[in-house]
Design a protein around this nucleic acid. Sequence first.
DNA 1: GCAGCGAAAATATCT
DNA 2: TTTTCGCTGC
Length: 673
Amino acid sequence: MKKFVLRRDDTGHTAADFTIPYADLLNEQQLEAVMFDRGAALVIAGAGTGKTRTLVYRVSRLIESGADPSSILLLTFTRRASREMLDRASAILDARCHRIRGGTFHYYCNTILHRYSTRLGFPENFTIIDTSDALDVLQLLRTELKFNKLSQRFPNKNTLLSIISTAVNRRMTLHEVVDSRFEQFLVHIERIEQLAEVYSRYKHQNKVMDFDDLLVYTLKLLQTDADVRNDVAAANRYVLVDEYQDTNALQADLVNLFSSVHRNVMAVGDDAQSIYAFRGADHRNIMQFPGIYPETKIITLEQNYRSVGNVLTLANNVLEHAKQKYEKKLFTQREEGELPALVRASDEREQSRFIAQMVLNLREQELSLNDVAVLFRNSRDSFDLEIELGKRKIPYVKYGGQKFSEAAHIKDVLAHLRVVVNMDDAIAWNRILTLVEGIGPKTAGELIDWININRNTDQILESGIISGKYRENLSKLFALLHSIRGDDISPAEAVDRILAYYKPVCEKKFDDYPKRLKDLESFSGICINFTRYQQILDDLVLDPIEATVVGSEPGKKDEEPLVLSTIHSAKGLEWEHVFIIQCLDGVIPSGYALELDEDLDEELRLLYVAVTRAREQLYITYPVLQQSVYGEFFTKPSRFIDTISDKILEPWMLVEEKEPPMLPGDDRKMLPE
DNA sequence: GCAGCGAAAATATCT
DNA sequence: TTTTCGCTGC
C-alpha cells in the first residue's frame, strides 16, 4: 500500500536559510561546489585548494538542507580519510554527520556483497583474503600445475598477481597485459591464462574474495540484478567521491551504478596528484567523467591556501617537467616564505643526523613535533632515520610499509577465526594446520580435502586419516576451534583463547618472539571493540592497523610524535615543515619506472604530492654515498630536482660544526662514528 | 613427508 | 635485508 510522506523540498535554498555562514567561510568556487544541488559535478581541486574543506562543508550543507544523513554516500580513498571528514563535518554542524555512510570502494562493496552475495553463488559468510593470502594461493596453484619446473622461467607469484590484477583493474585481457608490460613471459601466456582461471575457481570454491573480487563481483551484481541495483542506488540520494584521480574504469562504472536512481554525483580530485597507477588507477579517468554524465558541471579550485609562495613555485616547477602537460594555475595570496632547501649529505647517516637535529631545533622553537613530517618513496628509506630518532629519543609514528595486522603472527591468529566463520577458507586452514608440528603442506592438503567433503570437523580425529605423530597436537587445535564456535563467545574472549594456544607456537616459530608476543597482547586489546568475528576479519583486512613504531620516551609524557610517512600515505595531509629524504635517482623516480614516460610521469606526480604537503618550509635531502649489500656507491640526486634553478630550490651543504671539547660534568653525548 | 640449513635471488608504493 | 629454493637427514 502506498502512503504519502511529507518531505521538505530541499531544492532552491539560499545561503540565508542555513545556520552556518557558508558564503563567509568559502571562496566563490568552493561555495559553488558546496551549494551545487542536483545532477553531476566534477570538482577539479589542485593541491591545498581546500578540497577536503569543500567536501566537509558540502556534507554539512546537504544535511542542513534536509537530506537524511544515511542517504549520503561518501567514497574516500582510505577509511582514515572518511573518518576524519565525518569528524570535521560533525564538529561544524552536529553529530548527524556521523550517520553518513562513508568508506572506501572496497569497504562499501563489501557491505553490499555480504547482503546480496547469495545471488552470485557466494554465501554471505565469505571471507576476504589480502595480498599475501592471494600470493600464497598462487604459489600453491603454480606448484600444483607444475609450472615451477619449466625449463623457461615462469613468472613468480608476485608477477602473476600483478598481471591478473592489472587485467582486472584496467579492463585488459591477460594477453594485453603480458604483451605490454611483461613481454618476456609471452611464451607462457596460455599457462598464465590457465592459472588465472584456476585461481578464480579456487577462490569461488573456498568462498573467499580478494580485493579485486570485491569490486568485480559488486559490479557484476549491480549490472545483472536490477532489484539489487535499485535497492542499492535508491539509498544513495547523494554520492560524493573523493580522490577521483586515483580511481579506474571499474570504479567509474560502480559510481555510475551506485547513483543510478537519483543521479546526484560529485567527483572531486586532481589529475596532477594521481599516484596509484600500480593499482590500476588511471589519471585520465577523471577527465572522462563529463563523458559519462553529459550535463556535468565542472568547478575548478585553483587558489592554494596551504603553502607559502616559494613552496608553490617549486611545486609548479616540478610539474612542468612532466611529459604530459597539466593546465595548472595554482596561486596563493600567502607570503613568499623561505626558499625550499636542497640539502646534500655525504651519506645516509649524516642525512639522518641532520634531520634529527633540525627536528630538535624546531621543537625548541615551540613547534609541536607532529607539525613536522619526514616523507620518503619507500618504507625502508626511513630505517636509518628511525635508528637515529630512537637514539635521540625523539618520538615518532610511521605510516606506510608493513602493517601491524599483516604481520605473520597476527595473520596466524586471525586464520583461526577465519575457519570458524568460513569452514571452506582453505587458505586459513592451510595456515593453521601447517602451524601444527608434524603437519606440512601435504598432510594439510589431505585434511582440507576431508573437511571439504565431510562439511564438519567433529569426526576428523576418528576418521582414520590422522597419523599418531601429530594426533595429540591436532586434537588441541580442534578443541580450541570447537570452544570458540558458539554464539555466546565474544570476539575478545575467542582471541584470548586462540592466544593461549598460539603463544607456544609463536615462540617456536619466530626467533624474535618477544616482540611478537607484545604485539599479540595489544592485538587482544583491539578486539574488545568488536562484536562479531566477521567484523574483525573484514575490518582488519580492509583497514589494516598502521604499523606505528613509536619511539617512546619513558620520561616524557605523551608528546605528539613526529610523523614519518611514505609519500603515498601522506596523500591529503599537510604539515608546517616537511622533509623529503632520499631524493635520489633510482629512488624517486624508482629504478623500475625509468623506461616508460607514463611511469616516469607518475613518479613526478609523486614528488609533486610530496612537495605540496608543506605549508611553511620544505627541505629536500639526499646522500651522495649510498650503502648497499654490495658495498658503497655514489649516487645522483633525483632527475626531477637536478635541473631546477638555484633561485627556486636553494642548495645547501652540511658542514660538521666542531664541538667544544668535552668538559667534566658535561652530559653531552658524542655523535657516533 | 617434514624440518632445518645454507646458498641464491630479488627487492615498492596500498585496498 | 629478506625471501625463496634445493638439499639433507630424520
